[in-house]
Simulated assay, not measured.
Amino acid sequence: MNPFSSTPVLVAAALLTTGASAFAQNAPYPSKQVNVVTAFAVGSGPDAVLRLVGQKLGQRWKQPVTVENRPGGGGFVAIEAVRRAQPDGYTLLQLDSEHVSALPYLYAKRNFDTLKHFDAVAPLFLTPFFIAVPTQSPWKNMADLIKAAQTEPGSLSYGSWGVGSPGHLGGEWLDYLTGSKMTHVPYREVSQLFTSVANGDPAWSFASIPSSQGIYRAGKLRYLAVASPKRNPQMPDVPTVAESGGPAELDVNSFVSLLAPKGIAPAVRDKIHADVTAVLQDPEVKEKFATFAFQPITWPLAQMDQFAKGKAEQYRLLIQKANISLD
């Protein structure tokens, strides 16, 4: 038997394999299932809207889009699940702006910079925050709150849903802008936080509409202002911080976006961004976002990168100034 008789067969098989691989690489994106890993728990607002966006993308792409929940570890569980994936657009990651911009400073000993390991591919939504006080609070506006904080440094407390959360860093930002010094009180449960605020201890907190509306509608909370340059369309009677006598620079929000492992091809990145932007215009998607008071955002990629880097610089300043660490 000729020992080289199988060589043509092996060569042909190798060529077929190489050709199939090349075809897969050159096929229009997406040519197979796309998996999105999220740092948020099943049933949460970000999870619910992501599943609808994924469904709409699947219809548009004619490929399945799956959602895999990996909450915990300050976002690191989801991040580690995606960090070593191929940067081909078939494995994406849903994070909020704190995972992207604050995490490197909150966990400084880990020496991990989210923006060095991932490329942003599409923004999803922004959540504005209101300043909530008990209904019986003597403060009528932000000027009253700030005056009280400045009069007795350290005596005024504010709550948040965790160290390093937007509610915590927003309070640090207010201190920085006004020269005041307030005491932060972190809570493990959001519901417990707003029940405590309604009872007057702590004295106030930042609050999103969905997390605080139950107690607000029960008449136990008031919103002094929205920490945003513009009034919120869902609460148009609530003034901005600037209109309420506070610093106009106090803009407290969190935005959620999709990212891919570093090195994604620009054409694939642009494709995902364009299709997510189109899906966000879908009436059903808009209605779903509205139920959580999420504001869909369709920023260009350059604006998205700039916003994330700006938040990172602000968070670096606040975290280092207040010596906050989760290591």
Rank of each mutant, 00 (worst) to 15 (best):
P28C: 10
S157R: 09
G19M: 13
A22R: 14
Q306V: 05
L259E: 06
V241D: 00
N323G: 14
T7Y: 15
Y105C: 07
L126S: 15
V252N: 10
P283T: 08
Q303K: 14
L258G: 06
V42A: 05
V34T: 05
V49E: 03
P71R: 04
F255M: 06
E152C: 11
A102W: 01
A248S: 13
L193C: 10
A143H: 12
A20H: 10
F294W: 06
P236F: 09
L177S: 10
F294L: 09
I324R: 11
D237V: 04
M182V: 10
D96W: 11
S137R: 08
R84I: 03
V121P: 00
I79F: 01
S244N: 02
T151I: 12
P8E: 14
S208F: 03
P186S: 05
H273E: 11
N232Q: 12
G245P: 06
H117Y: 04
L318P: 04
K288G: 04
Y315G: 07
Q213G: 06
A143G: 15
W173K: 11
W299S: 13
L169A: 03
R222W: 02
Q59E: 14
E287D: 15
Y223D: 02
P3V: 07
A102G: 02
V252W: 11
A102F: 07
P283H: 09
H168L: 12
K181A: 04
E243S: 05
A22E: 15
P30K: 02
W299N: 08
A149H: 03
H273G: 01
D201W: 01
L95D: 01
P87Y: 13
K56W: 05
A12E: 11
G75P: 07
P153E: 13
P300D: 13
F194D: 06
W139M: 14
Y105A: 07
D237A: 12
T178K: 08
Q150N: 11
A132Y: 03
S244R: 05
D270W: 05
S208M: 14
V67R: 00
H99A: 04
